[in-house]
Design a protein around this nucleic acid. Sequence first.
DNA 1: TAGATTGTTAATCGATTAACAATC
DNA 2: TAGATTGTTAATCGATTAACAATC
Lengths: 214, 214
Amino acid sequence: MPNSPTVRRMPTYLHRLFRMRNDGEQFVSSSELARYLRIEPIVTRKDIAMTGLPGHRRHGYVIDELIAAIKDYIGWNDKITATLLGAGSLGSALLGYQDFPSYGLDIISVFDANPDKIGQDIRGHRVFNIKLLPDVIKLNPPKIAIICVTSDAAQQVADTLVSLGIRYFWNFANVSLQVPDDVIVQREVIAGGFAMLASKIKYAEKGEHFNLGD
Amino acid sequence: MPNSPTVRRMPTYLHRLFRMRNDGEQFVSSSELARYLRIEPIVTRKDIAMTGLPGHRRHGYVIDELIAAIKDYIGWNDKITATLLGAGSLGSALLGYQDFPSYGLDIISVFDANPDKIGQDIRGHRVFNIKLLPDVIKLNPPKIAIICVTSDAAQQVADTLVSLGIRYFWNFANVSLQVPDDVIVQREVIAGGFAMLASKIKYAEKGEHFNLGD
DNA sequence: TAGATTGTTAATCGATTAACAATC
DNA sequence: TAGATTGTTAATCGATTAACAATC
């Protein structure tokens, strides 16, 4: 039932709403939020309608209520525990992502195969030897696994995690993980974003026009 | 004219095709690629049709030709020069991204405001003081700017870059940049991916069903 | 009241899916 | 020939956009 374009716009609304709340504002209109995202106000109204929150004609939406409604809609009121696989550059970057706690994401264990990394403390997280994966996960099972290992290693690590009962993955490796049907994988395709930009550049320079889209 | 879902699937096809080529294979069928991405073969055929490459009935597509056609379609045969703003954890992670050169992306300058970072060498790139931005950019103008500074600083940095003539942005900051209409911004919304996963988890645990989607 | 804003219903658009023809 | 695969055309589905009614 979650609708992808709507859900993906939600964090951007939230970011703006936090700032407005900080500035002491109480109400926001759909056109105000839409202008910031550079979309049509009707899209924003439809998005907000998905959360079930009613607005106030003539005044818009109550910012506090809207923040709560959006957070609830995208599941950011629920705490989600995670294990991070791979403490390389991308993994370390995610460990330093200040916003994660406010998203409800709590990284409770970190693994790497590199002896230089094992035992180290990265941003407050002790890095475990990936050989200890089964033991640590059994002792302290996370809800999701964040895959930041190399593309070559990703499938094997995923297999182990599936066998340990992990059913949700956030995959930053540049592969499509092969998992059982009841396992949910969210892929973060950084190459896909760059492909969009590169092809936009290519067509823009040809003078062709196209929808901005995502 | 580039179609978003199609373009975003292209790097995943490529990844698989590189591996197949490595294994010495010459032909690939749409159903083979589709199985890997867990989509319907007709989607793959439509995607490939966008590139204009004809296949061979009974045999599928010639892998070498398909790689070339996809790379051309998403602009990965053209070299794109970039400047990186922000050498924090995410910026450093991108500097270490081994795949970028094969995407045609060449980071030619790196900037940061942090005195601890300035002058340092990060993965072979000297970090410049962001105060030197105008001088360095004028001397060696990049095609795109990759924004990895904090959300607070992103808009100001973008304004400067726009005034220096940069017209393409890849934005990893969690804000919607306000730029002139002729400037193209590709946003990488990591929070959006997590929002998708979190709401999928929420609905999955309620026992509700929904399209897997992205 | 007039005006601004939400919210509903219908129309449009674009992407996916289905059916099947073409052909190697 | 039979079978596998591409490729075309039409149908469906889902998201966006448009029009406008409701109401504070």
